[in-house]
Amino acid sequence: MPGAAAGQRVATRSRRAGGLVLGIVLLAVACALSLAVGTKQIPLDQVWTALFEPSGTKNDAIVRELRLPRTLIGVAAGAALGLAGAVMQTLTRNPLADPGLLGVNAGASAAVVTAISLLGVESFNGYLWFALAGAAVAAVLVNALGGSRAATPVRLALAGTAVNAALFGYVNGLQLVDLGALDTMRHWTVGTLAGRDAGLLWRVVPLIAGGTLLAFCLARPLGALSLGDDSARALGAAPGRTRVLSIVAITLLCGSATAVCGPIGFVGLMIPHAVRPFTGPDPRWLLPYCALYAPALMLGSDIVGRVVVPPSEIEVGIVTAFLGGLLFIQLVRRRRVAQL
């Protein structure tokens, strides 16, 4: 029996390691297609030439100036949202937790729209900090309304739905009142990777990197906390400190991603559920998987949006909302979720 258990552990580790390799391959394929696919199809060999041996052709300009920044932003924002969703689901022990469903993205959106419409902030450097502050306030508010330490998955979901509705109603109201700012905000509030330059990415990379590092450092305490506060203390984790640091990580990740791309929902919901059959509940495996598979989903959704209705595009936020809505319906129909 001990030998069988040891063999099962080895098989589990091998399966998990293989899943990480598969995630790297899928992400690499998604990046390559993101650089090659669009209104103008560019062969992969020409994409390679544009990246490493540019000669000033039109294809070089398309790849380097338009698609490369879009791809890199998609990778960074996708990883941030996937990690935030995994941390949030583990922290709350709520399988429906998601930065979008629990109001974090809505808080960032409301703060950015306020900065643009009411305060006249036009630069990215200006409204980035509003996005972070709005995400933090929304996270704390939903947690408080849901009962804080006594929160249940249903109460958190209801609190998040209420905060989402209120904040997005506020956003829509501001757009109707300030018609001058409507054109500036309308693409941003849908959630898009289009029209973003590399300068935006480099401004948020330190924040996303900080949130990512903090999330990985919290993997072991989060795993202990998922067993309950008493068990976490027995295992040497500090529940209060873990919760606070987790909210900080979620705020950094969601606020940065939302500031660059706008509110993109359901990525943080879909990916943890998709990879958990391979990783199990252990955050030490769940987080690396999400950091690989979430950007692959983000880029895949963006590619789908480019090719469905050419020469126009469907914004990535619409594609992820459609896919996530289908998954959400499936989740709430499951008996174990319905009974929470």
Results as ranks from 00 to 15, higher is better:
residue 194 A to N: 13
residue 267 V to C: 07
residue 164 N to F: 10
residue 189 T to C: 06
residue 291 A to F: 10
residue 164 N to W: 09
residue 222 L to H: 11
residue 201 L to T: 01
residue 268 G to W: 12
residue 189 T to Y: 11
residue 202 W to N: 03
residue 243 R to H: 05
residue 249 A to G: 04
residue 175 Q to I: 13
residue 190 V to I: 15
residue 201 L to N: 03
residue 211 G to C: 12
residue 171 V to P: 07
residue 216 F to G: 03
residue 182 L to N: 12
residue 253 L to W: 12
residue 200 L to E: 15
residue 254 C to I: 00
residue 223 G to Y: 13
residue 194 A to P: 01
residue 248 V to Q: 09
residue 228 G to A: 01
residue 243 R to Y: 13
residue 203 R to W: 11
residue 229 D to H: 05
residue 278 F to P: 03
residue 183 D to L: 14
residue 213 L to Y: 01
residue 192 T to I: 11
residue 167 L to V: 05
residue 253 L to R: 11
residue 303 I to Q: 07
residue 201 L to F: 11
residue 196 R to C: 08
residue 219 A to D: 09
residue 206 P to T: 12
residue 309 V to P: 02
residue 276 R to I: 02
residue 306 R to S: 07
residue 257 A to P: 05
residue 239 P to S: 10
residue 245 L to I: 10
residue 254 C to A: 14
residue 269 L to R: 08
residue 248 V to N: 08
residue 239 P to T: 06
residue 239 P to I: 02
residue 173 G to S: 01
residue 227 L to P: 02
residue 259 A to H: 09
residue 274 A to K: 05
residue 214 L to A: 12
residue 295 P to L: 14
residue 183 D to W: 03
residue 172 N to D: 10
residue 192 T to M: 03
residue 163 V to T: 10
residue 301 S to N: 01
residue 269 L to Y: 11
residue 280 G to C: 03
residue 279 T to S: 15
residue 302 D to R: 04
residue 272 P to T: 02
residue 268 G to T: 08
residue 216 F to R: 00
residue 190 V to F: 09
residue 203 R to N: 08
residue 279 T to A: 15
residue 300 G to F: 02
residue 251 T to P: 07
residue 225 L to K: 06
residue 182 L to H: 13
residue 228 G to V: 00
residue 200 L to V: 14
residue 265 G to V: 09
residue 220 R to A: 15
residue 184 T to N: 14
residue 283 P to T: 01
residue 258 T to G: 02
residue 239 P to Q: 06
residue 300 G to E: 04
residue 185 M to W: 02
residue 306 R to N: 07
residue 224 A to M: 09
residue 293 Y to E: 10
residue 219 A to W: 13
residue 279 T to Y: 12
residue 286 L to C: 02
residue 300 G to H: 09
residue 259 A to F: 06
residue 286 L to F: 10
residue 236 G to H: 12
residue 222 L to F: 12
residue 167 L to R: 08
residue 221 P to N: 11
residue 226 S to M: 12
residue 223 G to I: 13
residue 270 M to K: 00
residue 223 G to W: 13
residue 203 R to I: 09
residue 223 G to C: 11
residue 225 L to W: 13
residue 188 W to T: 06
residue 288 P to E: 03
residue 292 L to T: 05
residue 303 I to R: 05
residue 227 L to S: 10
residue 288 P to M: 08
residue 241 R to P: 00
residue 224 A to R: 04
residue 281 P to K: 06
residue 216 F to C: 00
residue 186 R to M: 15
residue 291 A to Q: 03
residue 208 I to A: 04
residue 249 A to C: 09
residue 260 V to D: 07
residue 299 L to N: 07
residue 219 A to R: 06
residue 226 S to Y: 05
residue 234 A to K: 08
residue 279 T to M: 10
residue 270 M to R: 02
residue 276 R to H: 04
residue 239 P to K: 06
residue 288 P to C: 11
residue 209 A to T: 14
residue 240 G to E: 13
residue 200 L to M: 15
residue 221 P to I: 09
residue 281 P to R: 09
residue 271 I to C: 11
residue 171 V to A: 06
residue 305 G to W: 11
residue 227 L to W: 00
residue 169 G to F: 08
residue 218 L to A: 01
residue 261 C to W: 07
residue 215 A to F: 09
residue 178 D to Y: 14
residue 257 A to N: 07
residue 302 D to L: 10
